[in-house]
């Protein structure tokens, strides 16, 4: 029967589409993802570094800022660390170099100090007491990386570990659109 065949085919198409959606939406990491904060002014962030220096995000306008949400026991955080070191080294040689900050997520100062003493990385590490910064950015799992432009607008969110060269590539694209 023709109508029965059409019905069976329709059900098959719907089931296939459903499975495809499930497969596609299954947590791809290390890529730019959406957020309602993108294109909006960055939230107000005031905290201290693990060296007790004050930090106010509003005072960093005029610089590209990268926030990397981190925990010293998180495996993807450890995996992406060499990429962050290479990125920080590359940017330190530029006159308009990006300011990289680690945002400590649910971790002790000493554990973070030990991690960086062992694995290098001399950029500032920001405390996030009670996870207030993570909630403000909507970070549920680490690592996550956010890019804020010199005008104070949130420009990019990268979920999961960043692969080698990804940050450099994304920053270059953003700089090109900024004309900086």
């Amino acid at each position: 029967m023709k109508s029965a065949k059409i019905g069976t085919l329709s059900v098959a198409v719907v089931v296939a589409a459903f499975i495809a959606v499930l497969l596609v939406s299954d947590g791809e990491t290390g890529v730019a993802v959406s957020s309602p904060l993108l294109g909006q002014p960055a939230p107000a962030i005031q905290t201290t570094t693990i060296d007790d220096a004050p930090f106010d995000l509003a005072r960093r306008k005029g610089s590209w800022v990268v926030f990397n949400f981190f925990n010293s026991t998180c495996v993807p955080c450890i995996a992406e660390h060499p990429s962050l070191i290479r990125f920080a080294e590359g940017e330190s040689g530029r006159p308009d170099g990006v300011e990289l900050y680690t945002v400590i997520n649910d971790d002790a100062d000493d554990a973070v100090r030990n991690f960086f003493a062992t694995n290098d990385g001399d950029w500032p590490k920001l405390r996030d007491n009670d996870g207030a910064i993570a909630v403000t950015f909507g970070v549920a799992k680490v690592p996550e990386t956010w890019i804020i432009d010199p005008n104070g607008f949130v420009r990019l969110r990268i979920l999961g570990a960043v692969a080698d060269g990804v940050l450099e590539e994304q920053i270059a694209k953003l700089r090109a659109t900024e004309g900086s």
Binding site: P36, L37, Q40, P41, A42, P43, A44, A58, K61, N151, G152, F153
Partner: peptide
Amino acid sequence: STGGIEDSTASILAQARL
């Protein structure tokens, strides 16, 4: 429709900067 970020002082400052 744009995600519900309030038109705050921070927003005006960011627009001024831009």
